[in-house]
Computed example of a mutant assay.
Amino acid sequence: MEGGVQLAASHVSNPHEAASLGDGFDPGDWKSRIIAGRATGAAANPPAWLDASYETLCTHVMDPAYPCFFGTIAEKRGEMFYSYVNGKDIRDLPATMQTFAELVTLPQYRKNNIAIFFEPDAQPLTHEAYHAWFWSILQHLHDVDPDPKADAQPEPSHEDWEFSFAGVETFVVCACPSFRLRHSRNLGPGMVLLFQPRSVFVDTITNKVIGREARNQVRKRLETWDEISAHPDLGFYGDPGNLEWKQYFLDDANLPADDRCPFLKRQREKAAQVAAAVPAHTSTHPDASIDKVSGFAHGSYTHWHPRAAAAAESPFAPHAARHGAEHRHLADSEHERREHGEE
């Protein structure tokens, strides 16, 4: 994609033109598929450190013995998007995820994942610090989610909960250097977040959820790739007692996750009602604080305005009817949902 694309409302004239702007993504050129905020390709200005981080991930994923063959297939077919975070500056991450969410609602990108590379720390953090940073990032994204239905999502303690942003549910995998035994969760010198939309796990021909047998094959491959047995919290979406959040960031010693999820479901509408009853001079921004572990300001997202980045203004905005057609299979029978699991 020569020069990349800087997304703006002026690019949009109709849904067909919106979809065609994605044609510049080259399956053979990973840098053409970089997203940074509302920019793609060369316009995303990838930093110099990103090359080494990508090469490390690619070496792992393209190994014939790599456990998750879904990831291997995605890399081979060029069905991966990439992004990056310099230092701990996540101000552009919500816009990046908005762009990704709009792309994966299009038929040609419904099988795409996105890998978010974080700049390697001079000294790798402890496992506990990466854990806190990871959940701070997901919390931040949820707090600024432009989807008006975000408040209505179930609690993480509910079996139906999955992380969602801009209306797209994704299974999230955190890989970081602090994994010493679980090599499948260590993909390079810096933290890497993998967001896998639920559509990735649906067969494009049959519209059926990929079966449990495929999931079991991944589990078997983990036994030889990792130096530790599969984590006890790994499960299958929809199974009684299975909780998705426990599988996002695993312990490296097979200790079960805490009973309480670090992620807090937002209640923006309720908070707005409370704020309306409080005098303006006494109100403070609930997120204007510095996370002592992650080091970034939770209130720093205020420069990004979700309404200004609404789907109607995006060159990747799908036609409403097509969006429904592409995603109604995700609401298949309860039986199919119980056949769905993630790694």
Rank of each mutant, 00 (worst) to 15 (best):
D145M: 03
K111S: 15
G22Y: 05
F201N: 07
T59Q: 15
P148R: 11
G37P: 13
S136F: 03
A331V: 09
K292V: 10
A166I: 01
P64C: 05
F134K: 02
H127E: 05
G241A: 06
V209S: 05
A214P: 09
A39S: 15
E2W: 05
C176N: 15
T206S: 15
D252L: 04
G324M: 11
E213N: 08
T72C: 03
D89Q: 07
T282C: 12
H323F: 12
L125C: 03
F165M: 01
A321S: 11
P120E: 11
D258P: 02
G299W: 02
D291S: 04
H11V: 06
F163W: 05
L103V: 13
L243Q: 06
R328M: 10
K265V: 04
E17I: 15
L181H: 10
K111C: 12
S83D: 06
D29V: 14
Q98E: 14
E334L: 12
R337K: 14
V218Q: 04
E213D: 14
Y66D: 04
P262R: 02
A95Y: 02
L181I: 00
D160Y: 13
L330T: 06
K208M: 04
K88H: 13
K246Q: 01
D226P: 04
D251Y: 09
G24K: 03
H131F: 14
D258A: 13
H142A: 09
H60E: 14
I137W: 02
I90M: 03
R266P: 06
L194P: 01
H11Y: 11
K149Q: 15
G211K: 07
Q108P: 08
P67A: 00
F263A: 00
R110V: 05
